[in-house]
Nucleic acid binder design. Structure first.
Length: 716
DNA sequence: TCCCCTCGAGTTCA
DNA sequence: CTCGAGGGGA
């Protein structure tokens, strides 16, 4: 009897591995025949049988799931042939609010930022937040030329042909049209259409969609645009990206203009005089939620005046001028089957609840983080308890409360670990800290592996094809113990036994791909490099700050070495940087005092080229200058002044030092102005500063974020 | 010294 | 996404 017919549970591990490899190859081949060559050799049913067999074996032997598992490949490469599109203006996400108080706070924040009085209302445009897919539509001279999904906000997929089949997306705009226009909005499916579609699919013995959102997503990402055309998709326009000319002075006027151009905007939209009226609209929409023909998950508020929107700008990926006020999330009840402890990169021990699987908000949830021991105590969560869970912000599962009436007699409280569950080192909780940490450092395999994962992660070295499994396997096999080992992998592999390509889960192609991905990262910007090291308290933002200040790897390293040696000047320099305090300085000193880390750096320096940090906004006269604001500013708020200065390439510091270039002195300035005089640092008034900023700008609009020059970069 | 805001580090599931 | 802690303004 061939292994092929054997029930998965009766396969030996070797047989299973062999069969998985065979299935992966077969499925990949049929995928290609189906998607790219449009010439399937087997029926869909036969194909499904292959997939099911693969899944069953993977479920039985999870340790054998490898990089080229068909299930992974689908997620990793939405390969079905959509080109990538880079959004020239990133598609931001929205800050969320769940309660009236959060909305009031938003209003306050906006008012404070703009320097408005308490009695000056901020008019808001409110409209339902459609539960669909965010889309960007590009028009040139009135013609629809490109449509893309949001993707990660920076890069999405080109689904132009599919979008062109939607009635509510005009192929040509009406009336006078801007030369270039990017309209943004939501593609969705009405509930009635969704139900009808599912009935038809059921009748045709096809799998049904879980909800209208998934249904819309699935319909849009069809290879065959005829299929998309047959699906009842619709589009609401609610915003814009790249524009050749303004659509109007306010959000409201722009929405009217979009209507006039031939788009559909949401009929529930309303211009509210202030936050109270907006909250009233929220309640009205919540009340009629069920009677709306489409699913919504809240109401979006946007500051109406576009000049205010521009002044407010955005923080990270979130605009300060918009807010999503969500309806309360769906909850579910389930039982806690176990509480396990995970070890993070810094040794943090995190308790996680294993739950009896339950569906919440359309997804099956089986785990939820419990954060730390205090949290468990506060909520009194025990193994065996029935708990109420929700998906916070509709994503991350969260335990809300315990149903004490349902507590079984034998419910077991969580045992606080005194030793690391992985390496057995003592697990201690420092005074005043909420987390307990494994003290094993890099001798703890869990920490070592997590650090490597961080090193190759997307925000750090970004090495493709190295996930948790692969890193763990390499570590286990002794191939990669420290970051530099990655860069020696290929050379070492030439003489290794067995070769990587002969290892389980790898083939010649995947091995070559990996070596290629690693080789591509031998040049790395300083900020990424610093972040990759995983120094405590030094994340992405801090790494950028440090890179900007020290410019070169050599300068940074020697400065940090000096700090570690206790050099007071070096430490003072470090602390003079805005956002660097004692805790960060101590963390860096501790890292560089560790001989092991010094060796790691030496080894890495021999393998990679660290690129010097570029001057931000180079070319403006303020680039690289350090500015300190003090006293009360009259013409702009502090936040605004700071955002402006940074956009011009300046660094805004909190305190005056010898390194400070200008001190902008507002009214009622105190010690900082005095210190500036004492050190002989240039001081100026607010008006002088504004003139300087204006001159630095040279009449150009502030530089947009980093990203593509040129047109949409067609990678992939 | 206190409070607010931002950032870091943790985590889920598709 | 959330919690906790650091940094910096008041």
């Amino acid at each position: 009897m061939t292994a092929e017919r054997t029930a998965p549970e009766r396969l030996t591990e070797d047989q299973a591995a062999a069969e998985l490899a065979r299935l992966a190859a077969a499925i990949a081949r049929h995928d290609r025949l189906y998607h790219q060559e449009d010439a399937p050799e087997i029926s869909d049913a036969a194909y499904d049988a292959l997939r099911r067999r693969n899944d069953a074996i993977e479920a039985r032997f999870p340790q054998l799931v490898c990089a080229d598992s068909p299930n992974r490949r689908i997620g990793a490469a939405p390969a079905s042939g959509f080109a990538k599109v880079t959004h020239r203006v990133p598609m931001l996400s929205l800050d969320n609010a769940f309660e009236d108080a959060d909305v009031q706070a938003f209003d306050q924040r906006v008012r404070r930022f703009l320097g408005l009085g308490a009695d000056e209302p901020v008019p808001l445009v409110a409209e339902p937040k459609i539960d669909g897919l965010a889309i960007a539509l590009h028009y040139e001279d009135g013609r629809f030329v490109l449509g893309a999904t949001r993707g990660d906000g920076t890069t999405g997929e080109d689904v132009t042909r599919n979008l062109a089949t939607l009635r509510s997306i005009p192929a040509r705009l009406k009336g006078r049209t801007p030369a270039r226009l990017e309209v943004r909005g939501e593609v969705y499916m009405e509930r009635a259409d969704f139900l009808a579609l599912n009935r038809a699919r059921e009748a045709a013995d096809e799998p049904v969609f879980a909800n209208p959102r998934n249904s819309a997503a699935g319909s849009l990402r069809q290879k065959d645009m005829a299929v998309t055309a047959s699906r009842p998709l619709r589009f609401f326009a609610y915003g814009w990206g790249d524009l050749a000319e303004d659509l109007g002075p306010t959000q409201w006027a722009c929405l009217d203009r979009l209507d006039a151009l031939g788009f559909t905007t949401n009929p529930e939209r309303k211009l509210c005089a202030g936050v109270d009226e907006a909250l009233g609209l929220w309640r009205a929409i919540e009340a009629k939620r069920a009677s709306l023909p489409y699913d919504i998950d809240g109401v979006v508020y946007k500051v109406d005046r576009l000049d205010w929107q521009a002044r407010l700008g955005s923080v990270g990926r979130v605009p300060r001028w918009a807010l999503a006020h969500k309806f309360s999330a769906e909850t579910a009840r389930t039982t806690v089957e176990d509480i396990v402890v995970q070890v993070g990169r810094t040794g943090a021990l995190t308790p996680v609840a294993n739950l009896a699987p339950v569906t919440v908000g359309g997804v099956v949830v089986s785990r939820a983080t419990l954060h730390n021991e205090d949290e468990i105590q506060r909520k009194d969560i025990r193994v065996g308890d029935t708990v109420v869970i929700q998906r916070a912000g509709d994503v991350i599962p969260q335990v809300l409360a315990v149903d004490l009436d349902q507590r079984p007699k034998d419910a077991r409280p969580f045992d606080v670990p005194t030793a690391c569950p992985v390496c057995g080192s003592a697990a201690v909780r420092e005074d005043g800290e909420a987390v307990r940490r494994c003290t094993g450092g890099l001798t703890c395999p869990a920490q070592a592996v997590e650090r490597l994962r961080h090193f190759v992660g997307r925000d750090a070295f970004d090495i493709e094809g190295l996930g948790e499994k692969q890193i763990a396997a390499f570590f286990e096999a002794g191939l990669v113990r420290a970051p530099a080992d990655l860069f020696r992998l290929e050379a070492r592999d030439a003489t290794a036994e067995p070769r990587l390509a002969e290892r389980e889960g790898w083939g010649t192609v995947s091995a070559a791909n990996l070596f290629h991905a690693i080789a591509e990262r031998r040049r790395v910007p300083l900020a990424r490099f610093i972040h990759a090291l995983g120094v405590r308290r030094v994340g992405e933002g801090m790494a950028r700050v440090l890179a900007r200040r020290y410019r070169t790897f050599a300068a940074w390293r020697s400065a940090m070495d000096a700090v570690a040696r206790g050099d007071a000047d070096a430490r003072a320099d470090l602390l003079a940087i805005d956002k660097v305090g004692d805790a960060v300085a101590d963390a860096l000193a501790a890292f560089f005092a560790e001989p092991h880390n010094e060796r790691t750096l030496d080894a890495l320096a021999a393998e990679v080229t660290v690129e010097d940090a570029e001057e931000r906004a180079a070319g403006t006269t303020l680039a690289g200058k350090t500015v300190v604001f003090t006293g009360t500013l009259e013409r702009m708020t502090r936040d605004e002044a700071k955002a402006r200065a940074e956009a011009l390439g300046a660094t805004v510091a909190g305190s005056v030092s010898r390194k400070t270039d200008f001190v902008v002195v507002g009214s009622d300035a105190g010690s900082k102005a005095a210190k500036a005089r004492e050190l002989g640092v240039t001081t100026m008034t607010e008006d002088e500063w504004l003139a300087l900023a204006e001159a630095a700008l040279g009449g150009r609009p502030p530089p947009a974020g980093r990203g593509g020059r040129g047109k949409w970069r067609g990678t992939s």
